[in-house]
Write a protein that binds this DNA or RNA. Structure first.
Length: 158
DNA sequence: GCCAACGTTGGC
DNA sequence: GCCAACGTTGGC
C-alpha cells in the first residue's frame, strides 16, 4: 500500500521550515477550517508532508516534514488569550485538532510555485489552482516524487 | 497594499 | 434552507 502524503502551508515570517529544524518538533495548531482539520485527523504517524511557504519570497516548498504525533485536541481552542480561541468548541467534544510534525529534510532550494506549475504531474493539484486556500491538503505519490526529484532528492532515501 | 476567491455567519 | 454580508487567505 502506498503511504499517503500531505502538504502543510505556513507563513515563514511566522513559522518557516528553518524554525521547524531549530525546534525539532512542532504542534500544528491553529487550523480553523473543517476540511483542513479532517485532513489532519486522517494523518498517521510517520507519514510525510511537504512544507510549503505561503506569503513568502518566494512561495514554494522548503522541505519535508514527518507526522510525529497523530491528531489530538488543539490546545489553543480553549485559550481565551489565543487568537485561535474558539468559545464555541465544547470541552467534552473538541472541535479542532492538531498533529505534531518534525523535520526530515530541507530542500536544497525552495521549489517555487512557478516551478510546481511547470512540473509534470502537478497540473491537477489544488495548490496551483487560483483561490485554493486549504492549508492542509493531500498530495499524490506522483506529486510527492516529482517535487523531490525536481530538487535532486530521492523520495525513497530521505 | 490590493483584491479575487472562498468559507462562515446570521437574518429571514 | 437561502443568501448577503463579512472576514480571511494568499498570490501578485
Amino acid at each position: 500500500m502506498i503511504m499517503p502524503f500531505w502538504l502543510l502551508k505556513s507563513e515563514p515570517d511566522v513559522f518557516g521550515y528553518p524554525d521547524l529544524q531549530r525546534v525539532g518538533r512542532e504542534p500544528w495548531n491553529g487550523v480553523r477550517n473543517y476540511q483542513a482539520r479532517n485532513n489532519l485527523r486522517a494523518m498517521r504517524s510517520g507519514e510525510l508532508c511537504l512544507f510549503y511557504h505561503s506569503n513568502a519570497k518566494p512561495n514554494g516548498i522548503a522541505g519535508v516534514a514527518r507526522v510525529s504525533r497523530e491528531a489530538h485536541p488543539d490546545n489553543l481552542q480553549f485559550d481565551p488569550a489565543s487568537a485561535y480561541y474558539d468559545p464555541r468548541s465544547p470541552m467534552d467534544d473538541p472541535r479542532w485538532s492538531m498533529v505534531e510534525v518534525e523535520p526530515v529534510r530541507a530542500f536544497p532550494r525552495v521549489l517555487t510555485l512557478d516551478d510546481l506549475r511547470a512540473l509534470p504531474g502537478w497540473q491537477d493539484s489544488p495548490l496551483i489552482r487560483k483561490g485554493t486556500r486549504l492549508s492542509v491538503l493531500p498530495v499524490s505519490d506522483t506529486e510527492f516524487r516529482a517535487a523531490l526529484a525536481a530538487v535532486g532528492l530521492d523520495a525513497d532515501h530521505l
